[in-house]
Computed example of a mutant assay.
Amino acid sequence: MPLGTLERSAPSLFNQGPSALSRWALYSALALFLMVADARFHLTDPLRQAVAAVLYPVQWLMLQPVQLAQRGADYFGSVQSAQNEAQQARQQMTEMAQRVHQADLLRQENTQLRALLDLRARVAPQALAAQVVYDAADPYTRRVIVDKGQLAGVEPGAPVLDERGVLGQVTRVLPLLSEVTLLIDRDQAIPVLNARTGARSVAYGEPQAEQGGGMELRFMPSNADVQEGDLLVTSGIDGVYPPGLPVAHVQRVERRADSAFTRIYCTPVARSDGVRHVLLLPPQVQALPPRPEPPPPPPRKGGRK
């Protein structure tokens, strides 16, 4: 038999010391005694405190990466939450702003419609309400298109009013639409009456005036009694506009020593821009009495009996 295979341990006959079962019983009893003694008399508290004091730096170092990761996650989570809340707040503010704007538009429209109804009751019960669809495509004219035409009974020459006063006149009628020429158009003229003095004149459109367009009283003598702030109303002598409708206010009076006429600039009462609802009146010529028949010619002298 090779020497390397020989068993070098002593035979069991010569083994010394307690058996494994005895050692297990001894250690179990010792462990039980220590647990009872520690529970009753706190024998190991100093040892635990010493071990905890020694291991605290190691525990602190080991916990730093975990705490750093938690703080980073909390920071990014709070940033994302704040961004989401800010986005929701901006969306709510936008929705509220739209609602406020719509409420303002509805309130303005309601005010305009009430004023139009009052004006309709005072001017002509048969007035036709219409809505401005869009402005005319010609940039050199001041005209708008309304959504009433021949099928609604609109006639050429019909006066057009907004809630403040005279806006213009219908100059073209289509089956479903009508074209309205504003008073500030260069080709538009309207007979007016000075409400303060009772003097009659004619106001012409002036689209190049300040504030987007105005009107001008032409061929007024230099000594005419016209003051800034005078109200001009329709005179009614043209057979188109009913008398007494507000037209414009006198804005500026220019008297020149080298001219026999005074230049008078006026601001229309009606809104030339942004108007939406208007009234179409029948031409006043329908309400005028018929023209009387001319008298018969006198009989000729020396005629046959």
Rank of each mutant, 00 (worst) to 15 (best):
M1F: 09
M1A: 10
M1T: 07
L6H: 08
R8W: 09
S9K: 09
F14L: 14
N15C: 06
N15Y: 11
A20C: 10
A25N: 10
L34S: 12
L43R: 00
T44G: 06
P46S: 11
R48L: 13
Q49L: 09
Q59M: 15
L63P: 01
Q70K: 14
Y75V: 09
V79T: 08
A89P: 00
M93G: 00
A103G: 11
A115Q: 11
L116A: 03
L119V: 01
V123K: 00
V123W: 01
A127V: 02
L128G: 00
D135L: 11
A136Y: 05
D138Q: 03
Y140D: 10
R143L: 04
Q150P: 05
A152Q: 11
E155N: 03
E155P: 01
A158K: 00
D162L: 02
V166I: 11
V166K: 03
L167I: 11
R172G: 08
V173L: 05
V173R: 04
D185M: 07
R186V: 09
Q188W: 01
V192K: 00
L193K: 08
R196S: 08
A199F: 10
R200M: 13
A203Q: 02
Q211C: 03
Q211F: 12
L217M: 02
P221L: 08
D238I: 06
Y241P: 05
P243R: 12
P243S: 10
V250M: 03
V253E: 06
E254H: 14
R255M: 06
R263T: 11
C266T: 05
T267R: 14
T267E: 09
V269I: 13
G274Y: 04
V275P: 06
Q286G: 14
A287F: 12
P292K: 07
E293V: 15
E293M: 15
P294L: 10
P297E: 13
P297G: 12
P299A: 13
G303W: 09
K305P: 12
K305M: 13
